[in-house]
Nucleic acid binder design. Structure first.
Lengths: 219, 219, 219, 219
DNA sequence: CATGAATGAGTCTTCATTCAT
DNA sequence: CATGAATGAAGACTCATTCAT
């Protein structure tokens, strides 16, 4: 995978000093994942800064202070949620982009992949949607800005290629189109519920039909 | 309920001491508007709950405490920003809906009107976008839920009418389409900058072209 | 004055952004000084890290949170207490060192000046005594290390000059003597009470008599 | 009370379950001593209240919770460190005081003994120096106050005897002298490093020379 | 109208301590 | 004996809000 969003410490939290003896790194990625999932839901539902650590703890069934056994801070939870999500997202995207498809097929694949990610990381996507602009400015979350740049390059490039190859309408404002397409895909995280009427692939299909061919009946 | 998002006290807030025969102070509505505009920008930029009253005051050039001469609370600023915006929005929407246009023309008019609102109330739209879900649940902001319902009815109804009249494709999942259209329109507030390349009408046109006819070249 | 312990913001606390308007810097150095005096007493009595902000606030007659209107943090109070003290100390020391006295007279003047400082800044001296070693390592308190170096140079230099000029015993281990003298002077802050039996000058005289001529009767 | 700073449970701490006929666990006193030595270093370096149990554990190579197998509490570690030190100190002091020496020789012997203790219990002395004032007020550490009283009696008595016998200068303020002497001796713990340039006896000799005969050349 | 100062509730975080395994 | 995970109390700090001047 090319663009890891960031290098993360595998497992335990930061230990101040390995010092003299043995105190090994704390494993138990299972509990960690559980807690992160809970935190992600709460962040997604109420917004990061409106979410209290105590709320997360309540939801997870422990006391607020106990979260700090597993995480350094509220922010580090957010960080881990987002970076984990982006790592997986880019694994999928990079595979699509490396497949050598035509513009239309690439768009289709990217959209489908996006809805799949929404299906699996609904909360993380919602958080990303709501918080990334403010976060991207801070050094710790610099990888968000990186990701955004890569993202734009991938979509914009594909759209331009499509126009050049005559697959997409020539009068398209690609930049504008890119924004429309990007936003509509991701904003779906705010209403999508896994296990609902439509699976991600079905939603992708409907969405692609609209974007590619429009909703109007052809004259 | 007709159109007003909520009944608001016209003019200033309650005077502290109307008793002792003093001439009623006239809290300049101009200053009030200025301050609300500043607050809206900050809310939009950083999120409501991450915005401190002091930040707003700094930006406005006074001290935090002084804001309380003009407003009851941080929440009441938010309230006034959102309700003012919604009042104007519905004035426009209602005019469109009352015009008796066909489905396609109605959609076109609503979209155009929406981008005009974004042009004039960018900050308010951004705030609405980010905060309305959580706010709608609270009694004070019940008008947000009302508005949302009216909104859905207007769009969904138009889409359904369009399908029924054979103007829109019959296989359309209108509910899904509604969500896509709605989100894409409003999410534009997050990147739109008044006075930029494209005016609201131009953006609306591009957007409508995509939604109605798709981006793909017709075979 | 040559070695300012550190440049300090005169008056108000740090303001994040002067931003648009007028919000002037908060003056009122009086209240500030009061609060710092209280804080210094408590720090001196219980140690910095064992002192709670609430304790200081209780002693000062306000609520813990209110201290943050005047100071950025508990640490910044400590900082201001120490740097203010060191500024004054060095004003006195530098005057002595610039006076061109002989070694014995310089020692006498430094000791006397030191006890005067203890008389006026008892709490600050006690804090300095207890906390400076740990603090000096941290960047913010780098001036403590600077001061210590200057201090050593002044005393050690004078002692060496005295030995060279035949005023002090030739077999003296000056480094060891320096430490003894330095510690004994400053540790007096732990029992000294202003307004007690002996004024600072009297204590200095007794102390100098011991250090210079010993406590034993001459044979 | 004779010399024991406090009556301590000999051997380990109270067993959790002496009931069910299990062979009494033998908590190795060696490990205990190791851990106390580590704790003492950390307490001395950072101050008691600024030291976290976790820090001690890190330094000792185990986890924070594991320390509680060996000790009841952080405070009990401090207690044991200080009382062990004082027991040994008083063993030495009592021997000196019982030897029937003259005032000057007694002072010499006490000073020498003190520097020997610093040599062997540097960390404990440093802790004592920094924390005893606050601790002495608490019941559990009442022995610190006792010790201080005994200490004062021994030194003050010897100084007074010396003045009475014409060995020390008659104009001496013995109380002030006592404080100077006491402080200078013990504060040495803050810079003394075992195995350095001077052994404890050498330092004692230099120090006694200064205190008894002064640093100035006799005219 | 605005300021300066304060309140008080609440937030994140730390840390000594406990305990089942 | 030690670990991993938790508790719960307390600590530093923030912030919306109030109010006398």
């Amino acid at each position: 995978m090319s663009t890891d969003s960031k290098p993360r410490k595998t497992g335990g939290k930061s230990q101040k000093k390995p010092a003299a003896g043995k105190p090994a790194v704390t494993p138990s990625p299972a509990r960690r994942r559980e807690l992160l999932a809970t935190a992600a839901e709460v962040f997604a539902a109420h917004g990061y800064s409106a979410t209290t650590v105590r709320r997360i703890a309540d939801e997870a069934g422990l006391l607020a202070g106990s979260l700090y056994y597993h995480f350094d801070s509220k922010e580090s939870m957010l960080d881990e949620i987002l970076s984990t999500f982006l790592d997986e997202l880019w694994a999928g995207y990079d595979a699509v982009l490396a497949a050598g498809l035509g513009p239309r097929e690439t768009i289709e694949a990217l959209v489908t992949e996006s809805f799949r990610e929404i299906d699996r990381h609904r909360a993380a996507v919602a958080i990303y949607q709501n918080e990334s602009r403010q976060l991207a400015a801070r050094p710790r979350f610099g990888y968000l800005a990186d990701s955004q740049r890569k993202f734009e390059k991938a979509w914009l490039g594909t759209l331009e290629r499509g126009v050049a190859e005559g697959v997409f309408r020539p009068e398209l404002d690609v930049r504008l189109t890119y924004r429309f397409v990007r936003d509509t895909v991701w904003v779906a995280a705010s209403w999508y519920r896994p296990g609902g009427h439509h699976g991600p692939e079905e939603i992708a299909r409907q969405y692609l039909s609209m974007v590619l061919d429009g909703i109007a009946v052809r004259d």
